[in-house]
Design a protein around this nucleic acid. Sequence first.
DNA 1: AAATGCAAGTAAAGCGGTTTACATAGCGAT
DNA 2: ATCGCTATGTAAACCGCTTTACTTGCATTT
Lengths: 336, 336
Amino acid sequence: MATLNDVAEEAGVSPTAVSRYLNNRIELPQATRDRIDAAIAKLDYRPNLLAKRLSTGKTEAISLVTPEIANPFFAELAAAVEAEAERHGYAVYISSTGGSRAKEIDALNRLRDQHVDGLIMMTNQPDDGTLARLLKGAGNVVLLDEDVPDVAVPRVFVENVEGAYLAANHLIELGHDDIALISGPAELFSVRERLAGFERAMDEARLPVRAHWILLKDYSRQFGYEAMRWLLKQSPRPTAVLACSDYLAIGALKAVREAGLTVPGDISLVGFDDMPFAELVDPPLTTVRQPIADMGRIAFERLMAVLNKTPAPALTRLPVELVVRKSVAPAKRKTN
Amino acid sequence: MATLNDVAEEAGVSPTAVSRYLNNRIELPQATRDRIDAAIAKLDYRPNLLAKRLSTGKTEAISLVTPEIANPFFAELAAAVEAEAERHGYAVYISSTGGSRAKEIDALNRLRDQHVDGLIMMTNQPDDGTLARLLKGAGNVVLLDEDVPDVAVPRVFVENVEGAYLAANHLIELGHDDIALISGPAELFSVRERLAGFERAMDEARLPVRAHWILLKDYSRQFGYEAMRWLLKQSPRPTAVLACSDYLAIGALKAVREAGLTVPGDISLVGFDDMPFAELVDPPLTTVRQPIADMGRIAFERLMAVLNKTPAPALTRLPVELVVRKSVAPAKRKTN
DNA sequence: AAATGCAAGTAAAGCGGTTTACATAGCGAT
DNA sequence: ATCGCTATGTAAACCGCTTTACTTGCATTT
């Protein structure tokens, strides 16, 4: 591969001149420019990014850490960040932590080593302080979708409270009054917010929130499945379930089907996220849509603001929207 | 951040000694080792990867180009490659091309710039020769899942012919004789292979392959939808459809549902891939499973072989398996 | 006592760029 | 004839690490 020196030699100028010309730090007469351009073309020169990065200390790259890239919600989010980054000439290094704390820490350390300019972090499990400490050390961080307490960086979240409120209200309006909730770990910010939205809707309708029908563990299909199995065994059982992620809802759906029951015939179900497959499952899932493309775009914008030391809001809330499909039916009349 | 020089100074030795010690290229007495270790710990030293890579010309990183990371099939494949790469201490840079030729080329060029050691390439569209030329120039490439003609690199594919044969036979055994096929672009290797498997099954059963029921365009949900809509309008229409990817099958499913018909009641459907959501759609999809984890692992192994100039098979075929779920029913008796 | 060999390092160049500070030529003004 | 200015560059250090070739001191052999 040709180097800057080769180009300089070929063009009969100094490497300095070529470098400065390529970075627009010098005005050269047309003749010289032409010679350099010709040399570059002839040698098929491409700057060595490694060398450039080492020299400037800037990488024009960011890192994106996601719990699980195979989860379509995160995959779409990653794609959205990447699309925006590309428009700005930034590379994105995606790392997927498999939801394990150790791998999150790994990813953060590796990031320090790879010398990226910044980091967009998504997590889906509560932090015991480790993550916060690492993130403070890392600098140039933006949190997306989920909070990590005690770290002063820009955050991009959706209106979790509003989302759960809309979902619960939808169920209530259709006559449901025994509503269960399945969600992630109690310590997680989004879990608490969504729970708050649920409770607000129930309170406003003067419906009781039954503690034993609030099932919190993690945002996984497996837990959605287990939780729903448990709920179906109760008597009386809830007439509707609010699952606080589509993954949970899909697991729940499987449990219902296995029990020989149907959604929404026997039990109504609302999800949260509107991941790409929500409309394809059986039945198409009524769910709360998060604006994935906007989230990715805005998270990247916020990171750019941090990098350029431009002022930017510390917290951005993106609106959600209830998407009504086929997984909710009106409650059956009580046989009093 | 502390540098190697800082460590050397702190430990009272030369940078050379530290470098060689860290890379196991020198035997030092315990006392010296201890001093260096102490200095590293004290300064919280981490080697600058950029500098290391520039210096050695090795990056311990590979690039993975995928058509679309938001497609769960590719996302899982990417995760599998990443898992294996991590075991070997390699970083993986994922780029997602959105199925556009221009972006594939971009990705390959960027790769040259990023100086990765190697590349695992997945594509899902036919090549006009551009890609082949670039890949030849790139070196250290492995093709995964799909072929690019005329480039002599190791390939990892599944038994496409066998897969389609199994799927078609399954339909035939259940009495179907009017079977349509929906697949990707005719020029694509996997499309031709799967078509061959289909035709072989039909021939063996002495069933006619009707040319107007071979619908080839691209591996997208949209095309699956359009193709199925068209098929449903025909009279008589096929009693079963073999969709050569789950994405196609899912689009087809949507068309059936919109037409007020059901799978498998009115028409049977088999997919191909067994992506994670295949069992979650309505009805759970009967499909041909590709061994995603193995594909990722073996592709990485092949790339390592190329990098280490170890001999490795030019072509590896991984077995597929028919997963019977609920999207196929026995053919109804003909009302002669 | 000189030669030999080994252990324990080190000096300096190089990877491919960037950047700071300086150089030279040509030209108009005085 | 000289001064100073602008246009057009250049030399050399540096980013942080690796690596080749060399040095130094000491114990052992002859």
